[in-house]
Design a binder for these strands. Structure first.
Lengths: 325, 325
DNA sequence: CTGAAAGCGCTTACAG
DNA sequence: CTGAAAGCGCTTACAG
């Protein structure tokens, strides 16, 4: 069966397509008699009419879509929250958020052949090439772009580094002279983990502490060997890439018979539910997801309205002190 | 600046729009001279041409989009994996998967005004109304539909119930005569949690055990009171909605001074990294995400090709026995 | 081997 | 208050 179009509605309702459009879109400033309105709606309903998104977008010259591009690594619970929030905020402007899991190796350009979003939100920095291609295609780009393709710059990386620095300062503030860093063994997390580590090491340097080499700790298995090695090297505190890694360190300490936090202090990132009920409860870094989401939404709205983008919320992450450090 | 169109390319390259389309789409069966091909591509590149997805879709009568609709509740780590996988598999057919976090209250119909997917994958059952509206709009619907709007039927619910049943059988098999069920306190999880609970209670009945009333256990805080109540009522084993809830029960047992599993056995769902390194390591139910994703992809492909949909993988979830039960 | 033309389904000035 | 017509940008039969 062929698709039901607005012409079908018009014919069946005995009006023009113009009127159908006016009624179905509640176009302001036009007056259509109540009876006609009702008839058009009834017919549309009866025929199961669904307007063509493609035709709408083509004619209007824009869509109501915002695409959020997720990076090539496991994002963790924080990002899901963030996307939910973003969806809610943009919904109030009639926009729909669609998320693309950018795991495959295809070029983003291919995606834009399939969908024309009004704006794109990057949860990880875009390459300059991707960013300029999108801009030229008339898509608003929100989220950071690596200037010159070099990591380590931009708001996004800055905020990640801030997290690492927070961990270092907390641990140093508790009097630990020798820190370790437990990073992830997931290769996809490369640059994300790198930013947190970099912030951690910079802070160590600033504090006059030795900058540790990172140790890769797989999640879901007790990091017993790593804990023993640290213990042997005089390390009394370790910062982890995230809570899952921190939990693996905690389990390693348990296996190795090291008391936490007296013999080994541990601090994670994410403030996950599991971290809150660990033994001992995990000290961790919490990111203000709500504020981040609101900021992202504000950036999208600003870009669409041609206003200047608001500055990043500065005082974002904070240490949640619990039992482990 | 106005959008660059294929007409601009044609003009600049001194060819017709037909030729531009042939070259840029690598249309098979047409022969365009190598020189022309090169020139067209060069011009398109120089001008930063990006074809209009809307026009393409309108003309072709279909898009290359598959929208996955996430339900109104926190999905957990399993679903992220599943979506990544689905994205990969469908990419090999030139399809793009876009995820919609269906948290807002808007009708799905509104979404279809903004985007016309080829198919929609529901990670939770669709209402019959939504399903039929999508079908009438020419969208292939994959994933279960509630027949008559009643929960509890369909492949999806069946598989969720299987999880609850698995927990009950495992606990009963270990000789526990009196079981408890710890459900989530998240109101959004309503029917999802309900399906697991229903499966659990049915299995209890079949096994001749009393069917417990569920107790809501918030995640991230030790469920000490709940544990004490169970203990006082002679309960020696509890099944949890998921690992986060199970971890909260574990923490409650710790606080209440109950040894796990000897005084209280606990079994979760998800096989999360945190569960694997808990103290004691959590016994849990693992779902075969890869197989589920492959099945979902197969369903989409079958729907698009007009073939019959393959049956659900039957032997899905399994208990991973660790230290807690 | 290449081009002129039709048409996908909508919205919106414009004319009555 | 309502309708005829143009045009968004593409692809693809069709004609040369």
């Amino acid at each position: 069966m062929p698709r039901v179009t607005s012409a079908d509605i018009a014919r069946a309702a005995g009006v023009s397509r113009t009127t159908v459009s006016y009624v179905l879109n509640d176009t302001p400033g036009v007056s259509v008699s109540g009876a006609t309105r009702e008839r058009v709606r009834a017919v549309a309903d009866r025929l199961g009419y669904a307007p063509s998104a493609a035709a709408r977008a083509l004619r209007r010259g824009r869509s109501d879509l915002v695409v959020a591009v997720l990076p090539d690594w496991p994002v963790g619970p924080v990002v899901d929250d963030l996307l939910d929030h973003l969806t809610d905020v943009l919904a109030s402007r009639g926009l729909f958020v669609l998320v693309h899991h950018h795991r495959d190796s295809r070029d983003l350009a291919d995606l834009w052949r399939a969908v024309s979003p009004l704006a794109v939100v990057g949860l990880a920095p875009f390459t300059p090439a991707d960013a300029s291609a999108m801009t030229r295609a008339g898509i608003q780009v929100v989220g950071s772009v690596e200037p010159g393709g070099e990591p380590g710059t931009g708001d996004f990386d800055a905020s990640q580094r801030g997290i690492g620095a927070l961990q270092a300062r907390h641990l140093a503030g508790a009097g630990h002279p020798r820190l370790a860093y437990a990073t992830t063994d997931d290769p996809r997390l490369g640059r994300f983990a790198a930013a947190r580590l970099a912030g951690f090491r910079e802070a160590c340097a600033t504090l006059g502490l030795p900058s540790p080499r990172p140790v890769a700790v797989p999640v879901g298995v007790p990091a017993t060997a790593a804990v023993r090695a640290w213990s042997g090297a005089g390390v009394t505190a370790v910062a982890a890439y995230n809570d899952d890694v921190a939990l693996a360190v905690l389990a390693g300490a348990r296996e190795a018979g090291l008391a936490v936090p007296s013999a080994l202090a541990v601090v994670g990132v994410d403030d996950s539910p599991a971290a809150r009920v660990a033994a001992p409860p995990l000290t961790t870094v919490a990111q203000p997801v709500d504020r981040q989401a609101e900021h992202l939404a504000a950036e999208v709205l600003a870009a669409l309205d041609g206003r200047d983008t608001p500055p990043w919320p500065s005082d974002g992450a904070r240490v949640v002190v619990r039992g482990s450090a």
